[in-house]
Amino acid sequence: MKILVLISNVPDTTTKIRFTGDNKAFDTSGVQWIINPWDELALTRALEIKEAGGVESITVANVGTAATEPTLRKALAVGADDAIRIDAEPKDAFYVASQLAQIAKDYDLIMSGIESSDYNGAGVGGMLAAMLDIHSVSAVSGVSLENGAFTVQRDIDGGNQKVSVSAPLLVVVQKGIAKDPRIPAMRGIMMARKKPLNVIPAAAVEARTEFLGYEMPEAKAACKMVDEDNAKELIRLLHEEAKVL
């Protein structure tokens, strides 16, 4: 069995968000790049499934320019076997899914994070599954391989379900899929340098959406402070001033 984990290269979650060029583009100066947190959890779970046996290899794939290679190397350092980078600047979810569809055909399990922490698109996984005409399960917080079929735990509104689906399958995963991401050890980092990272040219695809510009949220009014010994006053303000109680 072969597993493919889709990796998005995103700004560190503590990044101060700024825009340049009349708010037309994200300002990448000084930004630290990381594996998208949900993709990192997907990879962690993939490694656990492999350790339990029956998995031949884990491939990680990313659509991005050469600048994203350190992120793929980190995925190799924690234990992925090989990496694929499709050489393109990602434009929108459809564009990215179309690029990935070139390389994603021969896997039994494809794992994708629920969304990327930058553009929060939540679209690539489902689109890729539809392009490959395979089944998908979304909002997944558990996946395991049992007797050749996948047992998947997913969130539904107001609860959760255990479902089974046969391969090939794409799961869109969220928190809970694995506990903590793994930190690469020195040995892993050394080995990662020798693992294959294949670069594939982009397919000619038109994006279907265009980001026209960005805005920052309006500055908030100062917080109204109430004394600790007079806390009931705050409840009165919520009731009479804010009118939310």
């Binding site: 929108d92 979810a93 459809f94 899914a97 629920i114 698109g121 939540a122 679209g123 690539v124 996984g125 489902g126 689109m127 599954a129 539809a130 392009m131 998908s136 399960v137 979304s138 909002a139 997913r154 969130d155 539904i156 509104d157 869109v172 279907r208 959406t209």
Partner: peptide, 18 residues
């Protein structure tokens, strides 16, 4: 949960932008 699961697949069927 439901919208996020169905909408991306739907766009591929409909040649739609999302």
């Amino acid at each position: 949960n439901e919208g996020k699961a169905f909408a991306p697949r739907l766009t591929v069927k409909l040649n739609a932008g999302l």
